[in-house]
């Protein structure tokens, strides 16, 4: 698979986790592809933490109002039919209050306990946490959707080495190699992309990885 099809493959699998009517917040990058792969009959309410509940399609150049309606990345956005604009306090009240069913986001590192690092590389990149810390603490389900390694370097670790975004917050990791659930006993491989073997996935994963007795194929 090339880079783009890997991203689409991961996004498509993450999309299967969403239920009709879910309120969902998507991180930047790969997670923004998730709505393109929603299963038939599933429609979700997208939350943009800067102030849209019910984010609509990306507006065309003529409809864009870049001074007035943007998403959490600062790019032109729209409110869907039935959507609303909210202020930051209400927006994060929805997040922390458990009114967001699911967030799908990327990671620099995630570990065997489900702790997540995705906001800072000390001495190199200090972009800030933005809304990420609130999202992974508040959303009912936290899905990390990312490539399994960073050009071969492990990202799924025994213990995160970078500063944490939150402790024990991740429920599920979806990569091009498989689907991993975070359980009290550690990481559990529940689905495998048939292009890979369990051994290959274990090699690409620093954390100990148990394999589910009902290991399924990740295809499609």
């Amino acid at each position: 698979m090339d880079k783009d099809s890997i991203k689409g493959f991961i996004a498509a699998r993450a999309a299967k986790e969403l239920n009709d009517g879910d309120v969902v917040n998507l991180g930047i990058g790969l997670p923004t592809l998730v709505p393109n792969y929603l299963p038939e009959g599933v429609s979700v309410i997208l939350h943009s933490e800067n102030g849209i509940l019910g984010t609509g399609p990306k507006p065309g150049k003529e409809d864009a109002q870049p001074l007035y309606v943007v998403d959490a990345g600062g790019s032109p956005a729209s409110a869907d039919v039935g959507g609303s604009f909210i202020d930051s306090s209400v927006s994060f009240g929805l997040i922390r209050g458990g009114h967001v069913n699911c967030t799908v986001l990327g990671a620099l590192e995630v570990d065997a306990e489900g702790s997540l690092s995705n906001w800072i590389i000390p001495g190199k990149r200090v972009p800030g946490m933005g809304g990420a810390m609130d999202l992974v603490v508040g959303a009912k389900k936290v899905i990390v959707a990312m490539e399994h390694t960073a050009k071969g370097a492990h990202k799924i670790l025994t213990k995160c080495r970078l500063p944490l975004t939150a402790v024990r917050c991740v429920d599920m990791i979806v990569t091009e190699m498989g689907v991993i659930n975070v359980t009290p006993e550690g990481l559990l491989l529940t689905e495998i992309n048939p292009e890979f073997t369990v051994e290959q996935i274990r090699d690409a994963t620093e954390a100990p990885l148990r394999v589910s007795e009902n290991l399924k194929s990740m295809g499609g």
Binding site: S88, S89, S91, G131, A132, M133, G138
Partner: peptide, 24 residues
Amino acid sequence: PQGSLAEMIRAAGAGLGGVLTPTG
């Protein structure tokens, strides 16, 4: 954190002594 920032400002404006949040 963005949500804490919003709520710390809201607390000041609403006469509250602080914010208890699990974030961070």
